[in-house]
């Protein structure tokens, strides 16, 4: 930078540079924080871009109606599959055990929707043609609302589902006689 060679100009230049350095440090700190969180905490974006044909969801593949809901995996974790469509989620009530790693797999059958479980970090867009994957763990039992968070045309205001977090033994008991669970019926 070239400014007038004067004493006050020099001082100004020095202060400017110091402030610029401070700014750069702030930014480095922020980026470092994001990287640190990415390494040490599980909340990171889904690892893979998965595509799927939204027009045949109801006929074939993992998002067929009878395969939706919560599934107990061999490793003890739970996979929840859900479909969003104008203007509901299926299952309209999701049931999950507490203190268990949950993998949520969801997609849209028509337009862009969003899935947000209140009081949690579960929050993802559902774009037709792509599968959204998010992991979660619920630490307390109780009920959460799960509204659609993206405008999906005129019935958007009526698109609310529920999530019930229940005790693990209760969930396991339910899972022993049914392979896909929900609290919709």
């Amino acid at each position: 930078m070239s400014v007038e060679k004067s004493a006050s100009g020099d001082v100004a230049l020095k202060i400017e540079r110091r402030w610029a350095a401070v700014s750069i440090l702030i930014i480095a700190f922020l980026t470092g924080m994001a990287a640190y969180a990415g390494i040490h905490q599980a909340v990171m974006p889904q690892t893979t871009v998965e595509i799927i044909n939204p027009t045949t969801l109801h006929m074939t593949g993992e998002f067929i109606e009878s395969n939706l809901g919560s599934a107990l995996e061999p490793d003890g974790s739970v996979t929840v599959r859900a479909v969003a469509q104008q203007y509901s989620f299926t299952p309209a009530c999701i049931v999950v055990p507490k203190d268990t790693p949950i993998t949520l797999r969801a997609t849209s059958a028509d337009v862009v929707h969003g899935l947000l479980i209140q009081q949690t970090n579960v929050n993802t867009m559902l774009v037709p043609g792509y599968v959204s994957v998010q992991t979660a763990k619920f630490e307390e039992t109780g009920e959460h609302l799960m509204p659609c968070q993206e405008f999906c045309s005129v019935g958007h205001e009526g698109m609310w589902a529920k999530v019930q977090v229940i005790d693990k033994p209760q969930f396991l008991a339910m899972a022993s006689n049914k392979r896909r669970l929900s609290c919709a019926e």
Partner: peptide, 11 residues
């Protein structure tokens, strides 16, 4: 992008 794999869905 990868095609979503369907593992043994409940019929």
């Amino acid at each position: 992008p990868r095609r979503a794999s369907s593992t043994d869905p409940v019929e």
